[in-house]
């Protein structure tokens, strides 16, 4: 009896703490990340078109907003539906000791909200691993980090590592089955971009989903299209995930997927390496290794279009 009432109390506290933390860290993230020098300055990411996969003269693209570099924090945090292995009862004491805490909750559109509190690890690069992909992000000056990542499986294992700390959690999100994810995963100071042109949309039109216009999970929940999750750092592993609701009757047609690799001072004349993951009829995620030779440094500021790396997605068979 005692235990039960304590648990109820804890649950309530958790909710409150999470809401507060999510709000706070969300706010902090925006501030901190906007202040942080962008991974790539906008002048190095102009537009370009290719014919037959070769480079053509670039034309400048409008400056991507600073938001480009932020994880999606598009809506107020919602009540967690499920929490596991997070020792949330100690969250309020965490400021006092150095034990890092991880809280994982589900958010709409089969997203996972991760809240990390590591008071003794401020401004630290943290790796986030889920299934076959690894992303990274920084804790803020107080050792906090909040981000959202799509659940790739109905049962998702999430691992967070930094220094010699490993925090793991597992979430069951049945809704994950209703989404398909197209993933680009890479490491280091490369500038790779996933572009989804939904149902005939042209560049910069409403249906063009990319880091400059990532759209929101709400859009997917409404069934009106996909959204992009971007977890990118210059030093660690980075990931862009395009998530599209599958089996939504109002969505029909073809989504074209184009990857762009920018030629920057850091990447010119180098091999762009990445992994591209995409579902096939025979695998939940089929992996393709990418090793694309980028043009030399005379071509800085241009973008190489990879139009055949990802297969277009067709929704609702005719």
């Amino acid at each position: 009896m005692v235990n039960l009432s304590m648990m109820t109390k804890r649950r309530t506290m958790t909710v409150v703490v999470v809401l507060f933390l999510a709000f706070l860290t969300g706010h902090m993230m925006q501030t901190v990340l906007t202040d942080r020098a962008p991974v790539v300055s906008a002048t190095l990411a102009p537009d370009a078109e290719t014919v037959g996969g070769s480079l053509l003269a670039p034309k400048p693209l409008a400056l991507p907003p600073d938001m480009t570099l932020m994880p999606t924090l598009d809506q107020p945090p919602v009540l967690p539906r499920r929490t596991e292995e997070t020792q949330t009862d100690q969250l309020d004491e965490a400021n006092a000791d150095c034990v890092p805490k991880l809280l994982a909750t589900t958010a709409p559109a089969a997203m996972i909200t991760l809240v990390l509190r590591a008071p003794c690890h401020p401004n630290l690069l943290v790796q986030i691993k889920q299934g076959p992909i690894i992303a990274s992000a920084y804790t803020d000056g107080d050792g906090r980090m909040t981000l959202k990542i799509p659940a790739l499986e109905t049962v998702s294992d999430i691992q967070i590592t930094f220094d010699d700390v490993v925090l793991a959690t597992e979430l069951t999100i049945p809704e994950a089955e209703n989404f398909q994810h197209i993933i680009l995963n890479w490491t280091g100071p490369q500038l790779l971009r996933l572009n989804a042109y939904e149902f005939g949309a042209a560049r910069n039109e409403t249906g063009h989903v990319w880091s400059g216009a990532p759209k929101s999970p709400t859009r997917a929940s409404r069934g009106s299209g996909g959204f992009l999750t971007r977890l990118v750092t210059e030093k660690g592993p980075s990931v862009e995930i395009y998530s599209l609701p599958a089996g939504q009757s109002q969505l029909r047609g073809v989504v074209r997927l184009v990857v762009e690799a920018a030629v920057t001072p850091a990447t010119c004349g180098q091999i762009a390496t990445a992994k591209a993951l995409q579902p096939t009829a025979f695998r939940r995620l089929s992996v393709t290794d990418v090793e694309v030779a980028l043009p030399d440094c005379d071509h800085q500021g241009k973008v190489v279009l990879l139009q055949n790396l990802l297969r277009d997605v067709t929704l609702a068979a005719r």
Partner: peptide, 11 residues
Amino acid sequence: FRSLFLSDSQI
């Protein structure tokens, strides 16, 4: 199985 993408015309 490993698939290695080298360019739009090479895999």
